[in-house]
């Protein structure tokens, strides 16, 4: 059975290609949410195995979204991988990392191998 990945990122083009790539491997089923305000409802509905979360987004940023997940008893256990185009690690909101309960921060651009490894690793650890 394919692993369910929820991608929350306002970059529509990027998420579209990311979904194509992940689904082409046959190992993942991907749902995209480009509007961070709708992240929580998307996650509740989709029940992902892992969440890929952008940091800098209009409306709610990655930290806010991660905090919402932490407040949700079901979603709290879902591993979150932060994916960001921010340059220096210091720029990645420490709050966001802490609140997500996940220390995995992937910098953009990321290649498919590394991303897949990261997703599978996170799912395995959580299981």
């Amino acid at each position: 059975m394919a692993h369910k990945v929820l991608v929350i990122d306002d970059e529509a083009g990027f998420t579209k290609l990311l979904k194509m790539n992940l689904e082409k491997t046959g190992e993942f089923e991907v749902r995209i949410e480009n509007n961070s305000m709708k992240a929580l409802s998307a996650a509740r509905e989709f029940r992902p195995d892992v969440i890929l979360l952008d940091v800098v987004m209009p409306g709610l940023d990655g930290g806010d979204v991660a905090a919402q997940f932490q407040d949700d008893p079901m979603l709290r256990k879902v591993p979150v991988i932060m994916l960001t185009a921010l340059v220096s690690p210091g720029e990645t909101s420490q709050d966001a990392v802490a609140q997500s309960g996940s220390l995995t921060v992937l910098p953009k651009p990321v290649n498919l191998d590394k991303l897949t490894q990261c997703l599978l690793g996170a799912i395995e650890t959580a299981a």
Binding site: M20, V87, K108
Partner: peptide, 17 residues
């Protein structure tokens, strides 16, 4: 740099595909 890295991330995804 952030604004440039986003299209770069997309390009890499395209290349990977």
């Amino acid at each position: 740099a952030h604004e440039v890295k986003n299209p770069l991330a997309l390009l890499l995804m395209g290349v990977e595909y």
